[in-house]
Amino acid sequence: MIQFQYVKPSKSKAAIDTVAKDQSAVFIAGGTNLVDLMKRGVMNPEKLVDINKLPLRKIERENGNVRIGALALNGAVAEDKLVLEKHPLLAQALNAGASAQLRNMATVGGNMMQRVRCPYFYDTAMPCNKREPGTGCGALEGYNRMHAIFGHSDKCIAVNPSDMNVALVALDAVVLVSGPKGDRKIPFAEFHRLPGDTPQIHTNLQQGELIMAVDVPENPYTKNVNYLKVRDRNSYAFALVSVAAALDLDGSTIKSARLAMGGVAHKPWRLNEAEQFLAGKPATEATFLQAAQIAMRGAKAFEHNKFKLTLGPNTIVQALKNASGVA
């Protein structure tokens, strides 16, 4: 059988040291993605460092943030009182992801580390620069209906499949990381990468760095929020396009907005310019339409995903309408 070592340390230092000094070692938490990839031969780690014994499951208020432990389960976070009160957008996004069974296994840290769902990445008989650098991007001239319209390169056009990540990038989350060289904080928007010439590098984590928690700063986006996911079936399907929209309203005026998209780029796609445009404007469909047009600047589609150039802005408008209550 495929041989690999398995260790389950009870101290984070031991876990980090093990992975830091062994290029073929990886952390495993819920395993909902990694185990699949191992079964298919896409990832072949020689050592699995199970971090489930580490005390990283708490969800608590900490210094103006909701701090969510890396091992908190997706399902638990989506139902957590504090999260529902402070960050309902995150709860909505989590509930839009995967299936109930998967959400009950998958962790927050693991969800951030989820690999792309590109069929060429998954099939070892197909070309994929991410899996095997230099073999070419299978999707570029192949089947690319699910693929990126922003930030892609000619090496890779896959998208980040997570729903949770879209909400976290919109909410200015910060990732707390511990590594062989100590602790550091990574703004969520800088955690994931665009493919560029090195699509094989998935995130900006260094070898041995372990996600300990994610901080979501408390903000005014507790009421007028919407995570809208458009997909091919109504559960257990990846987004064609998804939008996380959060508004701080003063009557019918938008004080400030947060906006991000999923299913469109190699990382959760924050729409800063559209947010800036929305600030101070009346919450009307006309405003939302203009914001959506700004958001779509620079989009470039491929043979099978041209519909995203229409579905993208439409979904932004609808998410903003849902969030604001504007009919």
């Binding site: 299936s99 008989a125 197909m126 299978g138 001239e141 091919d232 079936r233 109504n234 559960s235 257990y236």
Partner: peptide, 30 residues
């Protein structure tokens, strides 16, 4: 009507939707 359909990459003559995540049989929510 709404969800099922296999997709093949004809350059390779090989299916690209070949698991239950990518080939969409309807679920309760449908």
């Amino acid at each position: 009507a709404l969800t099922e359909g296999a997709v093949m990459d004809h350059r390779f003559g090989r299916y690209v939707t070949k698991d239950l995540a990518e080939y969409h049989v309807p679920v309760h929510a449908d």
